[in-house]
Design a protein around this nucleic acid. Structure first.
Lengths: 322, 322
DNA sequence: TTGAAAGCGCTAACAA
DNA sequence: TTGTTAGCGCTTTCAA
């Protein structure tokens, strides 16, 4: 790969002059400019991003940390982020924490080594002290995305509010027993439960963590047998909902008549499932774009500013499964 | 961020000595080693990957180029690649070509700028002269993954063979008319068509490119109306199959009785669809791992070696939709 | 075993 | 308008 010094030699100018030409500095005579550009083109010059980054110039690299890229929602998020970043000339280093806190911490170190200009992250536990500590430790701006992290820059859908919306909807539809598939500290479940408690249905609400499919089938069967009241399952994400739907079909349970099912994330597949999946839609594209824009603004115009707390509203998408 | 020079100052040794300690060079006295390590730990030293990369050391960065990360198959592939690479100490710069050749070319330039040690790519047109030219131009090893690129390192499922397998299966099941959803130059279609021609069913075989859902519904309806023979749809990927299934349900067509549907990729969702999707499974994890291992071997033990042409066999997964 | 010096490719001051 | 010089943080000779 040809370097500026090499081009300088070939065109009989100094290396900084080559730098000026290649960086569009106007104070270069047209003839030299022409000569240098021609030479650069001829040899297919590409600047060395490492050398550039070394004396403090921005690397135009963004760290992106997600919990699980194989989940369609995060894959889509990563894609939107990549597109938005690329439009402004940034590339993406992608990390997958796989919900493993040790990996998450390790990745944050890697990010420091590569001198990324900023980080967009879906933390595993956004409210934990660890997460706040990591963010402080990094000397570049970090934006938390899809989760609320009080006191930090964050762009998210308020899961509590969304969970409450789901609760209202299910009650409206006449369901009287509720099962949430996911962790009991999940914001959606907290909001869901709270709304149900407010309606005196707290006792009819519980949760299960999905570990594997067979176990879920057993648990679901047991739970269904517990009471004849019309029941609904709120799945923590669309992938879970997909599996619930399949189990109910196996069990010969009619959806939505006997049991309602609602997912979360509004992944692409949901609209084509049989029955089409009711779910909660997050404005992924807008969220990604705003987060990237905010991050890049912070990078490009440094200076203190109050942390951005940007909630987006989720939208209930009612289809055939509730 | 603390640097080696800084640590050298604090511990009263020279900077190269710090370098020796931090890189595990054994020729350092234990006391100095101890002092330096303590200081590094105390200040949470992280090496500067840019500086390291600048004098030719490996950057431990891999470029990964896929056509569409929001497709579950590629998302999963990217994840497997990331995991395999990370195990050997490499990080990933991710690019999404979105099936846009201009983007693909641009990304390849970016990759050069960052001095990645190697590239794993899903090219848009693996057989094109352009792709071969790009690969030659890059001065680092490039491995083509999921597609066959003759003369280059490639790890793939032979789409032609897989397409033929699908053809056999559909004929066995009694289908007599065939529609492929995807590009007519797709290897799967080529193999599919050829196998069907060999059985005298070439005239009953055609393809449609999926542009949007409504258009597909019209085309599918028209095609179905053309003849009363039992028909089957071979979707170029599971996402297409999902949409085909939905359209057929709308059209009131029974699957698999009246029309069979088979997908490609065996994405996670397929096994939970209603009806459960027949599809072709690619050994993504093995393919990713072998490709990464080969790439890293080429990086770490440079030297000429003949290009690796590694086909994996696809596996027909017959479920309920055929 | 340790240090001094040079250099990777570039940008930024400063001089001319 | 152009060139000279220095330096980013590190590795790699080469001496001592």
């Amino acid at each position: 790969m040809i370097t500026m010094t090499e081009i300088a030699r070939l065109t009989h100018v100094s290396q900084p002059t080559v730098s000026r030409v290649l960086n569009g500095n106007p104070k270069v005579s047209p003839e030299i400019r022409e000569r240098v550009l021609a030479c650069a083109r001829e040899h297919d010059y590409q600047f060395n991003a490492l050398a550039k980054g070394l004396q403090g110039s921005p690397t135009h690299l963004l760290g992106v940390l997600v919990t699980d890229i194989s989940n369609g929602f995060f894959a889509d998020l990563a894609k939107q982020i990549e597109v938005a970043a690329r439009e402004r000339g940034y590339s993406i280093i992608l990390f997958n924490s796989d919900y493993n806190p040790a990996s998450e911490q390790e990745y944050l170190d890697v990010v420091r080594r590569y001198k990324v200009d900023g980080v967009l992250a879906v933390p595993i536990r956004e409210t934990s002290a660890e997460w706040h500590a990591y963010v402080q430790k990094l000397d570049v701006p970090v934006v938390t995305i899809t989760r609320r992290a009080a006191g930090l820059d964050c762009f998210y859908v308020d899961h509590g509010v969304a969970g409450a919306q789901v609760a209202e909807h299910l009650v409206d539809r006449g369901y009287r027993r509720f099962l949430f598939i996911g962790k009991d500290y999940d914001g959606k479940y907290l909001g869901f439960r709270q709304a149900l408690e407010a309606r005196g249905l707290g006792a009819a609400t519980t949760n299960r963590v999905l570990r594997d499919h067979d176990q879920l089938r057993r648990e679901l069967g047991d739970w269904l047998a517990l009471s004849p009241d019309r029941a609904a399952v709120f799945a923590g994400n669309d992938i879970y909902a997909l599996q619930v739907l399949d189990i109910l079909r196996e069990l010969g349970v009619a959806v939505p008549e006997q049991v309602g099912v609602i997912g979360f994330d509004d992944t692409f597949m949901g609209r084509f499932l049989n029955p089409r999946l009711s779910t909660v839609s997050q404005p992924t594209a807008r969220m990604a774009r705003e987060a990237v824009d905010w991050l890049l603004d912070r990078i490009e115009q440094p200076g203190e500013r109050p942390p951005m707390d940007r909630p987006f509203s989720a939208e209930l998408v009612v289809r055939e499964s509730t």
